[in-house]
Amino acid sequence: MRAIWKGAVSFGLVSVPVKLYSATENKDISFRQVHAKDGGRIKYQRVCSLDGEEVAYADIAKGYETEDGEMVILDDSDMADLPATSSREISVEKFVPSEQIDPMLFEKSYYLEPEKVGAKPYALLRKALEESDRMALVTVSLRNRMSLAVLRVREDVIVMQTMMWPDEIRNPDFGAVDVEDAKPAEVKMANMLVETLAGDFDPDEFEDDYREAVEALVKAKIEGGEIKAAPTPAKTGGEVVDLLAALQRSVDAAKTARGESSAEEPVQTSSPSKGTPRKTAKKTATGASAAPRATKKASVKKAPAKTAKKTAKKAS
């Protein structure tokens, strides 16, 4: 594991130099959107919803949308005035009974490893937490923002769990559940069922069958040769790719205006090498994969009709 943060836990006059590690990792199956024809990845543009124009990253600002739909734009100077901190201290505010912390407040977990000089006070803090059955309520600055967290012991290691703020927990507003309708015989039977299914929690008894099924399916397709090795798009400047795509769209728009069918494939400017599939040769000639072309077409649909007419007129 690689440490993602270094600092110190401070309680009273004691300071414990520590390193922070992510204690969990997401192993959920994720899919990429690809072109079904050749497996090329689908790319997306940053397009303004009002004028349909692509926006450079340097021109993107932060916007806060109000409840009535108004947009408040915040620039770098506005963000600089906000309260932020880059402290490298995990400050213990108080030690609270473990049962007072609602598990719903827990957000992300981290392991704390002591530096060599902090091994003894680290062990002292760990022992104190174990014997008192309390959690240390702390404040810590992560990503330049102050967060609330707790320290607790898990398998001889101190774990820090960041917490949501209390007002981020929603209230169940669907009404109270009436338990008076349950009859004594039904309650007794329910208790018998609970006792029948009672047992200890063993995490090794459970597994993600969906993830395993997907991995088995992918493995079977690989072994059966059902894969598509999409060629790597040529590395060209963004302006060249945009210009080429704009010219292609202009040609298509001009032919459509004259009643001709638009070209499905760009003109091939170089001969494919011997043994090279035809699909690959076409993509090399244009200097762009099928994925960017699909993205550009999607952007044209968002642009106003006037823009398409102007483009066609210029091309003519």
Results as ranks from 00 to 15, higher is better:
25 E>K: 05
64 Y>S: 07
145 R>L: 07
13 L>M: 15
281 A>D: 02
278 R>L: 01
259 G>L: 09
147 S>Y: 06
300 V>C: 05
137 L>K: 08
296 K>F: 03
5 W>L: 01
301 K>W: 13
270 S>Q: 08
17 P>H: 13
228 K>S: 04
36 A>V: 11
161 Q>D: 15
135 M>V: 06
97 P>H: 04
213 A>D: 08
66 T>Y: 04
241 V>K: 13
126 R>V: 04
207 E>H: 06
84 A>H: 04
131 E>V: 02
13 L>A: 14
311 T>H: 12
27 K>D: 11
189 M>F: 12
224 G>Y: 00
70 E>A: 14
64 Y>M: 06
210 Y>L: 12
11 F>S: 05
13 L>T: 14
215 E>C: 00
20 L>P: 10
279 K>Y: 08
209 D>T: 14
164 M>I: 11
165 W>R: 14
121 P>A: 02
222 I>R: 07
82 L>H: 05
105 L>W: 09
12 G>T: 15
49 S>Q: 12
164 M>P: 01
105 L>N: 10
235 K>E: 13
72 V>P: 00
257 A>K: 14
235 K>Y: 03
224 G>P: 00
36 A>F: 10
204 D>K: 10
270 S>C: 01
79 M>V: 12
148 L>K: 09
13 L>I: 15
176 A>I: 08
142 L>T: 05
112 L>C: 05
292 P>H: 00
10 S>M: 12
12 G>C: 14
126 R>P: 00
228 K>D: 05
132 S>C: 02
107 E>K: 03
45 Q>A: 15
140 V>T: 06
212 E>H: 07
221 K>H: 08
299 S>E: 14
255 K>R: 11
245 A>R: 03
133 D>Y: 08
312 A>Q: 13
167 D>S: 15
65 E>D: 08
232 T>L: 08
206 F>R: 00
141 S>E: 02
265 E>S: 10
15 S>A: 10
151 L>C: 02
231 P>W: 05
309 K>N: 12
311 T>E: 13
275 G>E: 06
245 A>D: 07
149 A>L: 02
218 V>E: 01
254 A>R: 05
96 V>S: 01
198 A>H: 09
4 I>S: 03
223 E>H: 02
86 S>R: 11
310 K>R: 12
260 E>T: 02
103 P>Q: 11
60 I>E: 01
143 R>N: 13
295 T>W: 06
151 L>D: 00
314 K>M: 12
278 R>P: 00
228 K>A: 06
74 L>G: 04
44 Y>R: 12
315 A>L: 06
232 T>G: 01
281 A>L: 04
300 V>Y: 14
160 M>H: 08
227 I>S: 03
228 K>P: 00
1 M>V: 02
63 G>A: 15
140 V>N: 07
32 R>K: 04
239 E>V: 03
188 K>S: 10
225 G>L: 00
81 D>F: 05
14 V>D: 02
225 G>D: 01
171 N>Y: 10
160 M>Q: 03
224 G>E: 12
79 M>T: 09
211 R>A: 14
122 Y>F: 13
30 S>F: 10
118 G>P: 09
157 V>R: 15
182 A>V: 15
70 E>Y: 05
315 A>Q: 10
103 P>N: 13
210 Y>N: 07
142 L>N: 04
50 L>Y: 11
204 D>M: 03
315 A>G: 06
